[in-house]
Design a protein around this nucleic acid. Structure first.
Lengths: 338, 338
DNA sequence: TTGTAGGCGTTATCAA
DNA sequence: TTGATAACGCCTACAA
């Protein structure tokens, strides 16, 4: 079956035109006459010719393909970033290979290798929560391949990062809780190997400091911020005296915590006010609706991929390391209403 | 930069061993002595060798890659199916290329071509809402490539489909509304070119018929079932006399309709009861929580991909057309409580 | 404008 | 067990 695939040589033979001319025609070269082109196009259609990209990529050493690695595509934030990437890629004539690490370093390593061996022209990555060591990525960069980090930056060495201002957003979120009257604000924090969660924590601390709110380490509950973790964290704060506000480093944990607390007859926001992070669609529809930080996800995808395409074209990557910081915004909803 | 990529020939030269032996060693052939293998592995690591899959795929005419086309990865149902596919693929040693058609036929056509030109070994597809003509897929099948439809089947010609029993689930959902006392049940329906929505409508009609509930065409509101469509549909049923129940062909439309109706002081489920379809995570947390149909998404991914790998191995595709039907289940929540 | 020839990196076949 | 050689399908100097 598969053996009868049509090649440019079949077209060549059928028409008595050399395969090099066929190749040129199919690539729409202007060094082929209109007449021959037409003949070739027709014959190609007639025979059901389908270019073999593998061969052409091998030959040209360019794949016009980029790889994207995200923790999970089901997260609204990431699928929106991907939408932004795909839009830009489409305009630039690039294909996109989407991969998910599922927050596992091992998987991430394998994915990088697969992308590498498929000779993608560049990679956009949001590293997994487990990633603490960047060798698999440094090797890649060392070879001069363009690599851009988004959302979860890597400042271990020189890199191009596209991030949002997590510190500022977290500061504002916490400040908002303070201004509405919260005196004992807990923080649901994520893995501290991710700078992003460090920054969210720092913003929280900075706000407490600015308003002279006493702080105790017990107020910070560090987990993976999954659904189950939110419940664990909720139980935790019930043990603490008089917690009246929570700034959660993501929506997922905040939402499951709220659900749990509601079942325990804790009133949100009267007893405990909540602010989340990410603006997952679900946060707008739960009751009470969740105050959160909206991230410019689609824009992030566009910015990151535009940078990547620039680097692919100019090949001056090494020198062009830079960090782009996008601005998120606080959305106040019922979970932290005055 | 990129030019210094290491090939088997570099290893070959460095060690004075022929490149064919290097190739065999790197593929772990048992026709290479342990000693030479070791030398080769070490040198490969030392030089930072990274196999060129393009060349290998071209030569072997096998890519060990399958393509998956879904309408959108952000839909919980599809990302769960993909998770099932990836798990099976991983075990089978296959890579997966994930693509989204965004419900556009044009995009879908291009994706099929791209996958084809990259010589994937098979394709799993859930067609777009716009797809009414299957030429782009028939061409693919005609060449003997394995192709499996999931969730949204294609019975225009002989095909392998993996679906859920939409008819039965819809019948049960409607029956449930009837048993709880609804007498005027509307149906939010999807594009009728998708069999799936035909079946959901049929199940609804069958239930009305069985219980001798009078039916009028105005009760069926056909849209794309997007968020906005839910609102439009909600306005529509308010115009109808005494609608007291809605069976929606997806959760998205049901949820936005409920939100809208709540704002209009319609009581759910007292005034109008709702049952959705898909069990999106959001349906469990909104208020009232949404009764819906749970689909075995992860399992569907596993079943569909297992079938595909079988077809890839056995190459008897043409003759093996079959339809696998998985069983969904009704989840009763507050939106249709008695 | 078209043809010739060689090679991209790998692997399969055959021979040693 | 290893080596020599050709080929997968395509593209691109270079020559005509």
């Amino acid at each position: 079956m598969k053996n009868n695939t049509v090649t440019i040589h079949d077209i060549s033979k059928a028409l008595g035109i050399d395969s090099s001319t066929v190749s040129r025609a199919l690539n729409n070269s202007d060094r082929v006459s209109k007449k021959t082109k037409e003949k070739i196009f027709n014959k190609a259609a007639e025979l059901g010719y389908q270019r073999n990209s593998l061969a052409s990529k091998l030959r040209t050493n360019r794949t016009n393909t980029i790889g994207v690695i995200v923790p999970r595509i089901s997260r609204h934030f990431f699928s929106s970033v991907i939408a932004g990437i795909e839009e830009t890629a489409y305009k630039a004539g690039f294909d996109v290979i989407i991969c998910q690490s599922l927050e596992s370093v091992d998987r991430e390593k394998k994915l990088v290798e697969t992308l590498l061996s498929n000779r993608v022209d560049g990679i956009l990555i949001s590293i997994s929560m487990e990633t603490t060591n960047y060798e698999h990525l440094n090797n890649y960069k060392k070879n001069g391949y363009p690599l851009i980090f988004f959302d979860r930056p890597c400042n271990v060495s020189e890199n191009t990062n596209v991030i949002i201002d997590d510190f500022k957003a977290s500061f504002e979120a916490t400040e908002h809780l303070i201004k509405r009257g919260c005196k004992h604000i807990a923080h649901f924090s994520g893995p501290q190997n991710l700078e992003l969660y460090q920054n969210r924590k720092s913003g929280y601390l900075k706000a407490l400091q600015k308003y002279d709110i006493p702080f105790s380490e017990t107020l910070v509950i560090e987990t993976q911020l999954m659904q189950q973790d939110g419940i664990t964290a909720a139980k935790e704060i019930l043990k603490l005296p008089k917690v009246d506000g929570v700034f959660s480093a993501n929506d997922t944990a905040a939402i499951s915590a709220i659900q749990y607390l509601k079942n325990q007859d804790v009133k949100i926001p009267e007893d405990i006010a909540f602010v989340g992070f990410s603006n997952e669609p679900i946060s707008a529809v739960i009751e009470p609706s969740l105050s959160t930080i909206n991230q410019p996800d689609f824009e992030m995808g566009k910015v990151a991929s535009s940078l990547l395409f620039e680097q692919i074209k100019n090949k001056k990557y090494a020198s062009e390391n830079q960090t782009k910081i996008l601005t998120p915004s606080l959305i106040i909803r019922n979970s932290s209403k005055f």
